[in-house]
């Protein structure tokens, strides 16, 4: 295996301008070079781009209103008029799949950004400060981590006051996922900060009199960020899946809201007679989750120096 690897590098070397003797490349540009060659990177990026576009601008894909019920056509199979068929209310399933992207993508993005910010900050603080601060923050994280995610999220969602506003409903689901999801990010960040902290460049910066804030900002965080980026990308997919699960249980998003989870939940009842009602929202949901998890995989392989 190593022979093959060596042969590959020697044969590939002349095509590289500069090769190893060239100017030093940063981890990010190195990772970008690796990722560019992976077909999985392009497939997942294209999927994510399409889903983002769907979430921002659904009317680009369809001109049918997802809440327009044609009861006479309820439960028709896919045909030339309604490409994915219609559901039990006579809604156009294709249109609902397009409009459903917004809720899932919003929940996924917001939950990921917030868990990363909260967990990352706590993790940096705990890892850098050490001592009793670390003990206190770690135990605090353990408390939230020990509560089962799904049941905990259900409790949070039931506790929060009911609302009809679309964004407030989405925010409720996000809050539930963030409250229970931040400790895993904090643990991850803490362990990578502890790995980075004893390095010579950090010690040198401190010896030169850099303030703790400066050391953290320009030395610790950039070098401890890689594992976090990977897990955040994968988590984005997981949160989309969690949102759909909560909606499936009837706790997350509620029926007037158009969402894949809500539609799947409604379609399960008639699964035997009208499988198309279940198939299309499930397909969209799975593709969205797949895209983010695949991207996370590619980014991990690209950022991991052991793979070279």
């Amino acid at each position: 295996m190593s022979d093959a690897a060596i042969a590959e590098t020697t044969s590939a070397a002349p095509t590289h301008e500069g090769g190893d003797t060239g100017p030093a490349r940063s981890l990010a540009s190195d990772a970008w070079r690796t990722m560019r060659r992976s077909p999985f990177f392009w497939i997942s990026s294209a999927l994510i781009a399409v889903f983002l576009l769907m979430a921002i601008w659904p009317s680009l894909f369809t001109s049918t209103d997802p809440t327009q019920a044609v009861l006479s056509d309820a439960r028709v199979r896919p045909n030339s008029e309604a490409w994915f068929g219609r559901d039990i209310q006579g809604y156009d399933i294709y249109s609902r799949c397009i409009y459903g992207a917004r809720a899932s993508i919003l929940v996924g993005l917001l939950s990921t950004v917030l868990t990363t910010l909260v967990g990352g900050t706590v993790g940096v603080f705990a890892g850098y400060a050490g001592g009793w601060t670390d003990t206190l923050l770690s135990r605090l994280g353990d408390i939230f981590f020990a509560i089962p995610l799904l049941l905990g999220a259900v409790i949070v969602l039931v506790t929060l006051p009911a609302t009809d506003n679309y964004f407030l409903i989405v925010l409720k689901v996000v809050l539930a996922l963030v409250v229970l999801g931040w400790p895993s990010m904090a643990r991850l960040m803490r362990s990578s900060v502890i790995q980075v902290k004893p390095n010579d460049y950090v010690q040198a910066a401190r010896a030169l009199g850099a303030s703790p804030w400066r050391v953290i900002r320009s030395h610790i965080v950039p070098n401890a960020l890689a594992p976090m980026i990977v897990v955040a990308t994968i988590n984005l997919g997981a949160y989309i899946s969690a949102e759909a699960t909560l909606s499936y249980l009837g706790i997350g998003l509620q029926p007037p809201t158009v969402s894949w989870g809500v539609d799947i939940s409604a379609a399960v009842v008639g699964m035997r007679t009208t499988p198309h009602m279940l198939f299309f929202p499930s397909l969209f949901l799975s593709l969205a989750v797949l895209a983010f998890i695949m991207l996370g995989d590619v980014v991990r392989d690209a950022l991991d120096p052991k793979n070279r």
């Binding site: 399960v268 699964m271 279940l278 499930s282 799975s286 797949l290 998890i293």
Partner: peptide, 22 residues
């Protein structure tokens, strides 16, 4: 495994029940 991770458990569960069970 990538496909398996992507499909939510309630879809897998209902499909398994329908095809393998019923």
């Amino acid at each position: 495994t990538l496909v398996l991770i992507s499909i939510p458990i309630f879809v897998i569960g209902n499909l398994a029940q329908l095809y393998l069970g019923t």
